[in-house]
Design a protein around this nucleic acid. Sequence first.
DNA 1: GACATACATGGTCATTTTGCCAAATATGCA
DNA 2: TGCATATTTGGCAAAATGACCATGTATGTC
Lengths: 98, 98
Amino acid sequence: MVRAQVIKSLAHPARVQMVDALADGELCVCDLRDIVGLDFSTVSKHLALLKTAGVVDVEKRGLNQFYRLKCQCLSDFFCCVDAITSVKGREYREACRV
Amino acid sequence: MVRAQVIKSLAHPARVQMVDALADGELCVCDLRDIVGLDFSTVSKHLALLKTAGVVDVEKRGLNQFYRLKCQCLSDFFCCVDAITSVKGREYREACRV
DNA sequence: GACATACATGGTCATTTTGCCAAATATGCA
DNA sequence: TGCATATTTGGCAAAATGACCATGTATGTC
């Protein structure tokens, strides 16, 4: 099940946080490291995971690696997740106007 | 991060498969067991996880426990996931008409 | 060329997750 | 009541994850 791999790549607080931050535009690894507050190497591995899953893309410019979301549908993805956490799935329609 | 817990609950091939099957309506544990082909106890634990995360609901009728999705937005959720696996996020708009 | 900066990789260890078996519970029926 | 069916719980061992440290690599600067 390929789906599970993608979902798995997002199933971690730090990775959720990073993807959320990337929704506003690309960021380099050190930006993301500041955001999640983990070791550089750990962040790097999380990003490698997201990249393998196809969630993000990278572009090297100078010394930095800039990560960006590969698909803007992630916001809808999170919208559903949030609908579930709010325990009221019916709020989904209004909140996400789908 | 509460989001991560919900996503985590969906981050397993068997659970993805079960949620997908439940999209067509409620099913009892033995139905789901047949679908995923795992031990009864294992399936039961997976379902407990999904329930804790708020993804599914249960109703006991007779000897059976009927599980159903708590939120129909899961189809949109998977739609995004599929858009990512297809590596072309742009297909998302058409495929999921959002 | 020497060195600092920005990341990625490899290694290791603790924690979590999975899946099976065995046993316990709950419900319906003879 | 006694028994079969449906499902949950309690171990437990194997596999996967996550985080850190140390090290390696690439790039820009002097």
